[in-house]
Design a binder for these strands. Structure first.
Length: 411
RNA sequence: GCCAGGGUGGGGUAGUUGGUUAUCCUAGGGGACUGUGGAUCCCCCGACCCGGGUUCGAGUCUCGGCCCUGGCCCCA
């Protein structure tokens, strides 16, 4: 039998409904912040992602040649595509642009809990704003989005300047290597690397930096920071708005296009794959041949959020089963239509079963059955049976619909 | 790519030192049953992940692969 590809998943209706419910809450939050949804292709020219996505992501991309000989890639993330879209379509729209997206991405990785080869990201991009309030807005939105989903998380905020201030006399490539060690909190690796490259003098200050939990502590280690006032203002705004976060100078981020403030969120109840959000301020457009535009944004690992939430059932949907005899069929179909027009999920028998078997079947998913036979057809009524209490009575159609609608969702 | 632990009907399981037709529950289908059968009774469907090896005989032992779970790595 053919199996699904490794690292992919099938979603049955129950799970799909849970996912859609969380997705909807996130969309609503983004909308309330003024972030409107966009959509970009699932595959792009390979070059879009090789420009600056970071070596790790390039190695795990799904790459293919199309029939015209073009090198293409399934998108491993969406930010680069949104920036391309901005340059192609939206340069003249008044800034700032507030966009959000929800889509699947592909990375060829070893699957494990919370890590799949096809996975979904909910993300936002704020394009064309370069202010402390913009940085704060994106982080506040990140907080609201995660809270709306119901996950329990902690938010860490850093700034690439913290590390760069100490590494300013290194070339950028070397900086990245050292920052990677710091990001991983690989103390032994860091020490070894600094020794090999003859920069052991930096070890004390770098490890001290990782211990810092406030901006003042950071500047004691790094000295003057170019963005100090701005960072202070951003963090001040977050404090005033009571956003819970911890300052973490050790954040370097895996993608190479970040330029300023960076942040990550971790689910409290996940194991190795517990990062559920990552983002920051970045500049990417110049790499694609456009005018540069300051931007910031983040992506939420939607599947990890769902893993973190677990199997907690959403609200049970109200379902009505229409149960009928042959003599009542026409009336039954009209009754079904009335329930559907009221927005209720309504299922009728299509198996030619008798009344009892129909009730048996309906009871597996429905809370109510409307029983329609010769008698109801002739009188134009509905016998409504509450499958939970077992009570039933005969009503006119509008009353029956009203009774189900006002019953509220239940088990 | 590396390490560890796993894989028995759709789901959950039993399977002794290798030994009949692989256990049980549940789900699914059919029938009895034509206005309450959410029931009951009967019947059916359906599995040892794949491929080598050892053996008279493999679900069981062994090797390789695939897949799952967790960890490394990387990242969302």
């Amino acid at each position: 039998m053919i199996q699904k590809p490794r690292g992919t998943r099938d979603f049955l209706p129950d799970e799909m409904e849970r996912r859609r419910a969380v997705e909807k809450r996130m969309r609503d939050v983004a909308r309330c912040w003024g972030y409107r949804e966009v959509c970009t292709p699932e595959f792009e020219e390979l070059e879009l992602f090789t420009a600056r996505s970071g070596q790790g992501i390039i190695e795990e991309m799904y790459v293919f040649e199309d029939k015209g000989g073009r090198m293409m890639a399934l998108r491993p993330e969406i930010t680069a595509a949104v920036q391309r879209m901005y340059l192609n379509e939206a340069r003249v729209i008044p800034k700032p642009l507030r966009w959000c997206y929800f889509g699947d991405c592909f990375r060829y990785e070893r699957p494990q809990k919370g890590r799949y080869r096809q996975f979904w990201q909910f993300g936002v991009e704020l394009i064309g704003a370069d202010t402390p309030v913009a940085d704060a807005e994106v982080i506040m939105l990140a907080r609201d989005l995660l809270e709306s989903s119901g996950v329990s998380f902690t938010l860490h905020i850093g700034h690439l300047d913290f590390m760069k201030a100490l590494l300013s006399d290194m070339d950028p490539k070397e900086q990245r290597i050292v920052m990677r060690y710091l990001d991983k909190k690989d103390d032994a690796g860091l020490k070894g690397h600094l020794a090999v490259t003859g920069r052991s003098d930096l070890y004390t200050s770098l490890t001290a930096l990782l211990e810092c939990r406030s901006l003042d502590e950071v500047t004691e280690v790094t000295g003057e920071l170019p963005d100090y006032k701005r960072t202070e203002e951003t963090l001040g705004l977050l404090d005033e708005m009571e956003v819970p976060y911890s300052l973490d100078p050790g954040i370097a981020r895996g993608l190479d296009y970040y330029t300023g403030i960076v942040f990550e969120a971790f689910a409290d109840n996940l194991g190795a794959e517990n990062q559920i959000l990552g983002g920051g301020a970045y500049r990417l457009a110049h790499l694609f041949g456009g005018d540069d535009v300051p931007s910031s944004g983040f992506a939420i690992g939607f599947d990890r959020v769902m893993v973190s939430l677990g199997d907690t059932a959403g609200e049970a949907e109200r379902v009505v089963g229409i149960v009928y005899t042959q003599e009542g069929r026409t009336h039954a179909l009209r009754v079904a239509r009335a329930f559907r027009e009221a927005g209720l999920r309504t299922e009728t028998d299509i198996m030619g079963r008798n009344i009892g078997a129909q009730i048996t079947h309906a009871s597996k998913s429905a809370q109510f059955v409307a029983i329609i036979g010769k008698r109801e057809q002739e009188s134009g009524t509905v016998t409504l049976k509450d499958l939970i209490s077992g009570e039933q009575h005969e009503l006119d159609l509008p009353s029956a619909v009203r009774e189900v609608v006002t019953s509220g969702p239940r088990g």
